[in-house]
């Protein structure tokens, strides 16, 4: 089984978000980048398939050379090889189009991409990729096992979960639940050493997008919290009813 795990290179959750160049670009200055958390669940699930069913894992990122440390980390966690598609994408469609060529040429049985990345929160790449390839697609995937040419999958729905069967090749939009958080892998020293010598292929692409981010802004500063004394709860109800108008 050949698995492709798509890795987004995103700012750590605790990063301060700032913009530069007249608020038209994200300011990466001083920002710590990590593997997108939704992708990390997918990568660890892929490692499970590698250990249990002998799967071969390729990790892929669409981005410039600055994303390579993130790919090396995925290799240190246990992926067999890495691909970087050398373009600074302007939108999710460009990412999906670039990935589609890699999937077609690589003959992957399973593609796992996080259901959304924590930078642009688009939630579009896995579905667009499946749509471009005509592959089976399950989004918000929280359970995944594979037997032969068929996957048993669960996806999160409002207030519960839905169980599905899907035939391979399959694209899943992954999230927490593919593995539990306590089972996420972190690189060990041996992994870090071997990652240095694993193959990282750089490919070029002619993919183009159909949307572009033109301006960023930060939310208006929030007014200070209105504190209500613990013995004045009538006042809280009054505020929620008459001022906020939410009850």
């Amino acid at each position: 089984m050949k698995i492709l795990v798509c890795i987004s290179h995103v700012p750590d959750t605790t990063s301060k978000i700032n913009f530069t160049n007249g608020d038209t670009e994200f300011d990466t200055n001083g920002v710590q980048f990590v593997i997108n958390p939704n992708d990390e669940f997918g990568l660890t699930r892929a490692i499970w398939f590698q250990e249990q069913q002998g799967a071969h894992i390729t990790v892929v990122n669409v981005g410039g050379p600055e994303t390579e440390p993130t790919l090396r980390k995925a290799l240190a966690i246990g992926a067999n090889e890495a691909i970087r598609i050398n373009i600074n994408p302007t939108d999710g469609f460009m990412v999906a189009t670039a990935l589609a060529d890699v999937v077609k040429n690589g003959g992957y049985d399973l593609v796992i991409a996080g259901k959304e990345s924590l930078d642009y929160n688009g939630g579009m790449v896995p579905g667009m990729l499946a749509g471009l390839l005509g592959y089976s697609f399950v989004n918000a995937c929280i359970e995944l096992t594979i037997d032969g040419n068929t996957a048993q999958v669960a996806r999160e729905i409002d207030g519960g979960k839905e169980r599905l069967t899907a035939s391979l090749p399959l694209v899943v939009g992954g999230q927490k639940g593919l593995v539990e958080e306590k089972d996420l892998r972190i690189p060990n020293m041996r992994g870090i050493m071997t990652a240095r010598t694993k193959t990282l292929t750089v490919l070029e692409t002619t993919a183009s997008g159909n949307s572009v981010s033109v301006k960023f802004e930060k939310p208006a500063a929030k007014s200070a919290v209105k504190l209500v004394a613990a013995d004045q709860l009538d006042e809280l109800i009054n505020l929620l009813h008459n001022e906020a108008k939410v009850i």
Binding site: G92, F93, A96, G131, A140, G173, N210, S211
Partner: peptide, 23 residues
């Protein structure tokens, strides 16, 4: 932005060759 609509949207955008923005 329900779970089902967010599942449908990227497939639909490819089908219609439409630009897509979420949230």
């Amino acid at each position: 932005s329900t779970t089902d609509s967010l599942y449908i949207a990227p497939l639909l955008s490819v089908g219609l060759q439409a630009g897509y923005a979420s949230n």
